[in-house]
Amino acid sequence: GHIFDKYRNPNSPYFRNDLTKPEREAAYSIEIGWANSGTGGHYNSNDAAFRNEKRYDPTQESVEKKILNRQKVNEQLQDLFSKNGITIPKNTNLTFTINPNNFKLVVSGSKDESLMKQIEDLLNTSNNTRELFFHIMKSRNDDSTQFTPDSLAKFHLVNQIKTVTGYNLKDLNIVNGQFVTDNGTNIFDLYKEELLKNPYTAENARIAASHYGAQLFDLAKNGFDSIPDLVLSIGYQNGSLHDIGQKEHYGVKKTID
């Protein structure tokens, strides 16, 4: 209760007004994880201790790299459309929207339902939409309205659990504050077990389990839908993708300032 008051109860005399919301959430997850497990080891780069440190985000790219990547993806899309006989009329402003739980893409922006279905059927094959989803992530700027710290953290958690265990948290039941499989196995126990089968050292596995364990506990306690999914969209017009919800975009007319 004291931990809750410090970081989530603005009416408490113990509430930490001196911290930003991400810093409070980082401190809360660290301390509640310690309280639940009785051990330390969990860290979070949003902690106030790292406030003045320059953080490296592997999903961010330099402006030059973003432009180069966009050119390559544009070429790949144009080649894919051309080979499959899809012609998009000039100035048609389409929007591609991707659900992060299944990487299913939906097309909007045209009155031609047949055209949009053709594009959906084509892109929703192989790893096309997954690769496009991560391209949008790598193209984001700090002012992007599509990303929030909570939705981004939820995506990384869900993706991590699915990568290691094969289970999607969205498909699991929550029983007694835990995500469980159909046979009643606690997904966190399975995650820790599978970590040690992967090329992790015991120490790396412990750190990963501690880091994601606290987030998993919070999501199970509050419900999977308590945090919005990281649904991402990107525009497509005249042979080029165009970023949505941010001041700078890396379409065909983008140049380095």
Rank of each mutant, 00 (worst) to 15 (best):
I3L: 10
D18H: 06
L19P: 05
L19D: 07
K21D: 15
P22R: 01
S29P: 01
I30S: 01
I30A: 06
E31L: 13
G33N: 10
W34E: 15
G38P: 08
T39M: 13
H42I: 12
Y43M: 11
Y43P: 00
S45K: 14
F50G: 01
R51A: 14
Y56T: 12
E64S: 11
K65L: 11
I67V: 13
N69I: 05
V73H: 07
V73Q: 09
E75T: 13
Q78D: 12
L80K: 12
F81N: 05
K83M: 05
T87H: 11
I88C: 00
N91C: 01
F96Y: 03
T97N: 07
I98H: 03
N102M: 07
F103W: 04
K104L: 06
V106R: 06
V107I: 15
V107C: 04
S108L: 07
S110I: 00
L115D: 02
L115G: 02
K117R: 11
E120V: 00
L123N: 00
L123E: 00
T125S: 08
N128W: 08
E131F: 04
H135C: 02
I136N: 05
I136M: 13
S139L: 08
R140E: 05
N141P: 01
D142P: 01
K154A: 09
V158D: 14
I161W: 07
I161Q: 01
Y167E: 04
L172H: 01
N173K: 14
N173Q: 15
I174K: 03
N176V: 06
Q178E: 12
K197M: 08
Y200T: 04
Y200K: 08
A202R: 13
E203P: 03
I207H: 05
A208R: 14
A208T: 15
A209M: 05
S210E: 15
A214N: 03
A214R: 02
A220T: 00
F224T: 00
F224R: 03
D225I: 04
P228K: 05
G235E: 07
G239N: 04
S240R: 02
H242T: 09
H242F: 09
D243E: 13
G245F: 06
G245T: 05
K247A: 12
E248L: 13
G251M: 07
G251T: 06
T255V: 13
D257P: 15
